[in-house]
Design a binder for these strands. Structure first.
Lengths: 222, 222
DNA sequence: CGTAATGTTGACAAGGGTCAAGCTTAGTGG
DNA sequence: CCACTAAGCTTGACCCTTGTCAACATTACG
């Protein structure tokens, strides 16, 4: 079952791109943190941390996108979240990572080594709670919505996070989308095609989506 | 789809059972909080808070069980978590509840009104992170595991939370289990029957489960 | 321009949903 | 104490959505 999407190319260790200048880009990061200890530049599929590793830092996406996922022993994968610019990830309950984190595309990630001081830890609670609410809402999508509803919810969520522009750039492959929505790539692809035929979206290549009727999509996810 | 489990009888308002004696039961609550502002006694299906309400408190289960859930407009329900004795719930990202919380069975819930003072808020971060990890792990179960694997994971999780005794008391109905696992009651029932036929479990009535071969169940969820 | 990775589409199969009937259990009242 | 009832649970028959397998198209890249 689903063995075809078991292949992931991320044996590479974390490459520290060392302390770099980060005094630029003032204040377009939502929870404007203090100086990160370092900034990590990642090419696609670069591993940021792995399941089982000790959790030594929190991370904030500067640009690009990151996937958080888990694997079953037979290779089935569930992506629990995508994180884009400004979002914080890497929270763990007991000092070691229960998930993998990888760059989806060329990305930069700010690294805040633990322990985080008291001021900062007040700032991160909202980020943790946001992640919790997102995960719980995603449970509803995966647990109770059909394929079309899941894809509609996904597209609307992305559009909202990209500033509600009608045109969306998908950083992730169909495999990623399937593993996020609990579907196969074939089903994802068929839903995209159906949406195109219905006039709900326009596709310019596989990764550029224009939402022609966002209301129609919104109506689907009730 | 799934309209048969849309009926929920909880129009009742929250009944405050006022300040009661709570100096008893010392220190068997994992995150030993200070005095709660009140303790709420709940009969089955009593609403603790509703989606849309302002979040005014955090809650800790004293005994019994609580379900956290969301509804789609057509009545489909997804239970994102069950909470049992000692667990804290009610975290929200922006001051209002995105979910419903109801007692599953006769229960008592400690109420800590917001804002929580600084000392306490340090204590609650671990609870929030635990809830986040649980939700993300549940995503894997719902997104990528089949019916038998989901039920196996559910039974093992319950057993672990009840102290790893071989005998489990289910506080919740098949409908609740189905809505937690993203399955119908019929499928849940069939999996229970299959596990009984395989000798993995013994059922004494519908709500008492003995795990005869926990290793076999464990092997299923990889 | 050629090759590999990614995406699309079709035919078919299967897991789980739907509908319906019957069974168990707990609760109630005679 | 037992019969009656209603709610919850189980089981069967059938069917639909989505997964599987395969072929082909498209895109990205060297």
């Amino acid at each position: 079952m689903l063995a075809h999407n078991a292949i992931h190319s991320s044996p590479a260790a974390i490459s520290r791109v060392g302390r770099v200048a980060r005094d630029n880009k003032p204040g377009h990061m939502p929870p404007a943190f203090a100086q990160p200890h370092q900034v990590l530049f990642c090419s696609p599929n670069k591993e940021i941390y792995a399941q089982g590793e000790r959790a030594t830092a929190l991370y904030q996406v500067e640009f690009g996108a990151v996937r958080i996922y888990r694997l079953l022993s037979d290779g089935r994968r569930q992506i629990s979240a995508f994180h884009v610019a400004g979002e914080v990830f890497g929270f763990e309950a007991d000092g070691h990572h229960r998930f993998f984190a990888e760059a989806v595309c060329n990305s930069a990630v700010r690294v805040y080594r633990l322990p985080i001081d008291a001021d900062l830890s007040r700032d991160i609670l909202p980020s943790a709670l946001l992640a919790l609410v997102r995960a719980q809402e995603h449970l509803l999508v995966i647990g109770r919505q059909n394929a079309a509803e899941r894809v509609a919810a996904f597209l609307l969520d992305l559009a909202e996070r990209q500033g509600d522009l009608p045109q969306i750039e998908l950083a992730m492959s169909r495999t990623d989308i399937g593993d996020y929505l609990g579907l196969t790539i074939e089903t994802v692809s068929r839903v995209f095609s159906k949406f195109r035929e219905n006039g709900h979206i326009r596709l310019q290549g596989a990764r550029t989506v224009m939402l022609l009727k966002p209301e129609a999509l919104r109506a689907m996810c009730a």
